[in-house]
Design a binder for these strands. Structure first.
Lengths: 342, 342
DNA sequence: CATCTTCCTGAAAGCGCTTTCTCACAACCC
DNA sequence: GGGTTGTGAGAAAGCGCTTTCAGGAAGATG
């Protein structure tokens, strides 16, 4: 069989190195991997040969022979949302400390390609980390049944055979509701995130539960970007809400921008609350009241879970990481009816 | 030899599929890849078997046998900068259209790990795309000499045997200088990006050249984040500059925030100009005058160059993509000395 | 009806590496 | 000194796939 890499010059193989160093390929492998004792003088010759020939082991061949790739795959919905880079940094750090590379893929918020991408990742990674997967539960069941190490981040599905870590979105939204109720708000609106987002439904679940605080909530379809927030916010004044909750900070910021244009003062006439607490130091026009997601923690813990799953093969209970309320400049008590004229 | 994947249940191989379908492995391969005509009834049996067994081809084995991985690797300095996700989206689109996966790695602005990461990518990808690499020219020379398809994005190094595409940073900064000069500014400050950034030195080169317009420039060390901008901006008033240029929009936004805190009005007392024109719709506190980098174009073109390089093996001249000036709210004519009291 | 194509299919080799297995040699013990 | 153990290096098998090669069954031809 001929060299298949048409056009490319012949690659240096481990045998070439062996030949140059006057030893067998096995010995080269042993030297390079430190898997067995080798005569120091031979080892030196091998290292020299490696350097001279510019040898780099072929990852595919190693993967095949070792039965593992040394890579973990991460799927994220959207890199443009600052939430995910933060998670990724933490994941990468953990992966590197275990000597693994990270392969990132983005779905661009298109749930229909998620399944394929995950399959792809499974074919070329030792383990897969799914960040906020939007796919349906049934798809997730199929994937987790594949018996391939897989961890979920920011999506908990009861009864699934995969470990999961998530920010406690429900708790986070409850915190927000408590804050708003305490300020005296009664009617709130919610700019809803992607319909297929579990994180979104958790927020909604909390909003429903918050009826116990005496809050009544209007849900408005929106999305996950500032542009969505800007557009959907036009509907808010019509709802009679005195406070606006949102799917995330970006949406909230977009909404605030629209409110300003419409002449609605924030927070005097409308309180607006974000979600996630993304880092936008000195960039955003408004210092949002929001809840913070422990992104670094999430990434770290998910990556460690995955590592455990890959090496030891056992998994634990879903873990919820608490969110924290940060009260800043975008919330205030509602204006009383009598004040409206003022 | 035993199965090396300790702990994991036996994986389904192509032979298993063949056995189940009552054909040889070769036939399965042919059916799955469509590389040769196969009796439709056999093909159907194969497809059934694949479905039943949940077979997924092992990417490493395929890579080894085919001599290619079906993957391109992209190295970016920092995912948190919205610039790169935009590029990545375009790259991914092109890669997918050629049936390749994209593997993303981030250096976190640490030039010292760049070299290793690139080596890693080369070992497991058909081609590598380096976005704004910070490494020294000499390192780059070593890497490009590796005879592995490699394309540079936003870094042009004369005499390098690798194709390159870049935004025309020099031209972009010239546009800015022209705009400022035309407004009547004479003294400008520049918040400099990472020292090791070629993109930064291009901006500086333009700033020097702009002396011909009668501009005098003070360079202040800064960085690439809004936080850096915020911090470094404190030095600006001391320079006597009436206009501030920056490494990027994030820095500019941070600087504007600081100016406000210091009671310096933008643009009345100080014009501020960004760079890149990142998309921050309805999020940022200021609508910046800036120049736009054609991020999608850059990513697309770079990915296509890489594809050409991988398949046809030849490369072209470095390409500069023009930037465009967007005059918005952060620039204005300087106040004359006499007006200062006003 | 024998022979030559054509077409498909299975067998087998090989991609580059790791990891046995095997064996030569040396050191050790009684 | 013969037998035993231990050590380190090479040979070879095998990871799962693709692709060449060779051969059997149809179909075409004279």
């Amino acid at each position: 069989m001929r060299n298949l890499r048409q056009g490319r010059s012949t690659r240096v193989t481990i045998s070439d190195v062996g030949a140059a160093a006057g030893v067998s390929a096995s010995t080269v492998s042993r030297v390079l991997n430190g898997t067995a004792k080798v005569d120091p003088s031979l080892a030196a010759r091998v290292h020299d040969a490696v350097r001279q020939l510019g040898y780099r082991p072929n990852a595919a061949a190693q993967g095949l022979a070792r039965g593992e790739w040394g890579t973990i795959g991460v799927l994220v919905p959207n890199l443009a949302n600052p939430y995910f880079p933060d998670v990724l940094k933490a994941v990468s750090a953990v992966a590197r400390s275990h000597g693994r590379r990270v392969m990132v893929m983005e779905t661009d918020e298109d749930p229909s390609i998620e399944h394929d991408l995950v399959e792809d990742l499974m074919r070329s990674c030792d383990g897969v980390l799914l960040c906020s997967p939007r796919m349906e539960r049934s798809d997730l069941v199929v994937l987790t049944a594949r018996d391939h190490p897989l961890v979920l981040l920011d999506r908990i599905v009861p009864g699934l055979a995969a470990p999961a870590v998530s920010a406690d979105f429900f708790g986070g939204m409850m915190l927000i509701c408590g804050h708003l109720a305490q300020l005296g708000h009664r009617r709130v609106a919610y700019l809803s995130g992607p319909e297929v987002s579990w994180a979104n439904s958790e927020r909604i679940r909390a909003l429903e539960a918050a009826k116990a605080f005496g809050l009544s909530v209007t849900i408005l379809p929106c999305g996950s970007t500032s542009r969505c927030g800007y557009e959907a916010a036009a509907e808010v004044p019509g709802t009679g809400a005195t406070a606006l909750t949102t799917y995330n900070d970006l949406v909230a910021l977009g909404a605030v921008a629209r409110m300003r244009e419409l002449g609605v003062r924030v927070p005097e006439e409308l309180s607006v609350v974000g979600f996630d607490d993304i880092e936008l130091d000195h960039v955003a026009h408004t210092s949002l009241t929001t809840v913070s997601a422990p992104r670094g923690q999430l990434g770290k813990q998910a990556a460690e879970m995955l590592e455990t799953l890959m090496t030891e093969g056992h998994d634990g209970e879903p873990v919820y990481l608490p969110m924290e309320l940060h009260v800043r400049d975008s919330t205030a008590p509602p204006r009383m009816a009598g004040e409206l004229a003022g």
